[in-house]
Design a protein around this nucleic acid. Structure first.
Length: 443
RNA sequence: GUGAAAGUAGCUCAGUUGGUAAGAGCACUGGAUUGUGGAUCCAGGGGUCGCGGGUUCGAAUCCCGUCUUUCACCCCA
């Protein structure tokens, strides 16, 4: 019986694995050089844990099961709750700020579509308990950009679109929208970029009946820079303060030299209610893909998980959309590390009797090949030989296919204790004394 | 959960109105080449045409169901 792979999962054959590792290694390298330490948690947790942050409707979107002791468990759809739990458990002994990163394998029981699968990897970086919120937000965004730059995505390819939940809330309050309508509005405003302008206007009018108010919201959503906000709402202290904060983050990013990646975009809202300050997403400039990553400030998170009120900010980037973008830009194959075989040990495949004249010791060429390959490996080289029966011609072809640097040929010369060492790039070959070759390996 | 399109070899695909159409290229294996690689030529293996049912003398082809994939919606942590 043939069993197909499960919907929304991926098989990683060796070439796919090379790509996956390239992405993940890049995430890790950039995290470390930006001062983040790696952590991880279990791949399943209590179902309850995922409901705290995201509510009951989330249960439908995740893989859950009951263990034999009747516990309701779920495969993790995100790692932030685990982070909150782990940090809360040791909150008093951890030096602040806590700068941690992780590359968890996550699971969501959604219907797969472009850039969304049921199993994927997501890079997470978080800064918890920093005294300077503005600097922490800037550092999270900088680290994100550092990675994008590292893999060859310039500010012409991708943009970090930033806004602020605090600012948006203050603006809505200033316009006179009652607090209980904010969450529903966030959901709509978050969709602005996706909807045709006419549809957006219609939907906005449905939620905000006063056309003056609706027009003000629309005017705010159209603003292209932070100074414009100040002009429009200069008398509202809350708006001004939230706006200043966003401007300070921009100023820091400017100092860090990555301002050309960043633009103010009031239509960046983020779906969930738990963001409390700066929010951002990275989008490709062409704009036909969903967000490459999303992040922002969530100062209530640890408190919601039974810990103290302590500021936090972070970012999550999945591997699915990223990989599509890399393919569009042709970035992966260009950057993959070349697989390099140091030595391929070949034989002429003739029986070769070596040893004392009286024939007490007898070795075949194959014995020499296996012994020499093992010696090379023990000395730290990437060495191999052929399993196939075939002439030298076949073996050289195999060495060439495997991108070998050098090929060692065991043949008649071995009777004089000599190897043929062939440089595969130049095609030149030389006779080398076996013992000298071996002693040369150790230096 | 809703809607649309698609499924033929490991991959990309062709297959005429339903009538010897089970096919090509790439990949893989072997040979030309018994001591010299990337090329070329030749040959070979590999498919219940996603699966099940129906219509028909006859189905890869038409109908129904189902599974899977892709895309969009819902949602997006």
């Amino acid at each position: 019986m043939k069993i197909p792979p499960v919907k929304g999962t991926r098989d990683f054959y060796p070439p796919d694995m090379v790509r996956r590792n390239w992405i993940i290694d890049g995430w890790k390298k950039v995290s470390v050089r930006n001062g983040f330490e790696e952590y991880d948690g279990p791949i399943f947790e209590y179902l309850k844990m995922f409901q705290i942050k995201s509510g009951d409707e989330i249960v439908e979107q995740l893989f859950s099961f009951e263990d034999r002791g009747g516990r309701d468990l779920a495969l993790r759809p995100e790692i932030t709750p685990t982070l909150a739990r782990m940090v809360n458990q040791q909150i008093n002994s951890l030096p602040k700020p806590i700068k941690w990163f992780s590359v968890p394998r996550l699971f969501r029981a959604e219907r797969p579509q472009k850039g969304r699968l049921r199993e994927f990897f997501q890079w997470n970086i978080d800064i918890i308990g920093a005294d300077d919120n503005v600097l922490a937000d800037a550092e999270v965004i900088f680290t994100t950009i550092d990675y994008l730059q590292e893999v060859g995505l310039s500010s012409k390819d991708v943009k970090v679109k930033m806004s602020s939940r605090k600012l948006l809330a203050a603006v809505l309050r200033n316009i006179g929208i009652p607090e209980d309508k904010h969450d529903a509005l966030y959901t709509l405003l978050d969709k602005k970029a996706k909807l045709p302008p006419k549809t957006f206007t219609e939907m906005l009018d449905k939620q905000v009946h006063d056309s003056k108010q609706a027009n003000k919201i629309k005017a705010f959503m159209e603003l292209e820079s932070v100074p414009h906000v100040e002009k429009m709402f200069s008398r509202d202290n809350e708006v001004v303060m939230a706006n200043d904060e966003l401007a300070e983050v921009r100023h820091r990013l400017d100092q860090m030299g990555v301002a050309d990646y960043c633009i103010f975009d009031p239509s960046i809202v983020r779906g969930l209610a738990y963001y409390t300050g700066v929010v951002f997403e990275v989008h490709d400039v062409v704009g036909d893909l969903r967000a490459i990553c999303g992040g922002g400030r969530f100062d209530n998170l640890l408190h919601d998980f039974g810990g103290p009120l302590i500021p936090a900010t972070g970012m999550g980037m999945g591997d699915c959309v990223l990989q599509i973008l890399f393919e569009q830009k042709g970035l992966i194959d260009k950057n993959l590390p070349e697989k390099q075989l140091d030595y391929f040990v070949a034989t002429v495949d003739k029986p070769l009797n070596i040893g004392m004249a009286d024939g007490v010791v007898e070795k075949t060429e194959e014995d020499i090949v296996v012994q020499l390959t093992a010696k090379l490996r023990l000395a730290g080289y990437f060495a191999t030989f052929s399993y196939k029966a075939g002439g030298l011609s076949k073996q050289l072809k195999e060495a060439s296919d495997r991108n070998a640097g050098k090929c060692i040929i065991i043949g008649e010369e071995f009777k004089n204790n000599q190897l043929v060492v062939k440089d595969m790039a130049t095609g030149k070959q030389e006779l080398v004394d076996y013992d000298k070759f071996l002693s040369g390996l150790k230096s």
